[in-house]
Amino acid sequence: MVVLVALSAGIYAAVLIPFKGLVLIPGITEIRPANTLPPVLGLLFGPAGAWGSAIGNLIGDFFGTLGIGSIFGFIGNFMQAYIPYRLWRNLGLLKADDLEPNLNSGRKIFAYTVVALLGSFACALTIGWGLDLLKMVPFAALASIIAVNNSIPSIVLGIPLLMILYPRVKKWNLLWTDIMEEDEISKPDAKARIAALITSLAILVGLFGGLMAAVAGGQSLFAAGFAGGKAGLASVGFIAGFSTIIFILASLL
């Protein structure tokens, strides 16, 4: 498992680093085609892929953006891989007898799109809330940019990437279901389904509720958000912060 963590982290960092110069928000984020990887790594390698995404992002930060935001980047990138891993089996979008992440049907591609989007939103919510709390960047600007910046590559490139990588990883017995002990693999039962629903709901409420509260408080979306008002609104802090805590706790259940 530790090798898969290192491998995931190494791959993620290696794809992140060449794009460090293409800055979107100074010192915070850049154009990131590497965001294709976290949901794919999460679905293939499970928790190892999630830890790998978190560590890989931290290593990427070493090449120019290491700062206090790296703490929230660590958690956010962990969640971008961990949420798809947790929700894939538990959200109830797939048939119970076929949970393999091989994207061999329209249903599975739809499920992948949903979990990858929720993972991207979870990452945007965590980092957006954290840096707004520190009064570094307004929530509306940062969360909207990260949500779009993460979602597009993770869906457009993530689907073909997972289709190509799955058969090889399966053949080498490196899927998380092949590596983890039987009793460590959670069963998609009623408790897991409820936890998955709470996780999804908290992510959506946190991100879109937080964005609405931010806009109502004078912030604006995307680049215009820099003019919409200063970061650190109490309403955003409450909605986004509370939802972040809820979705993290629910996803760990």
Partner: peptide, 21 residues
């Protein structure tokens, strides 16, 4: 130790991945 080991191994893997690419 395990996360710390994973971190240091990942850092060493980056140049290898870049070299492979």
């Amino acid at each position: 130790y395990r996360p710390a080991f994973a971190f240091s191994t990942a850092v060493r893997l980056v140049p290898m991945i870049v070299s492979t690419s």
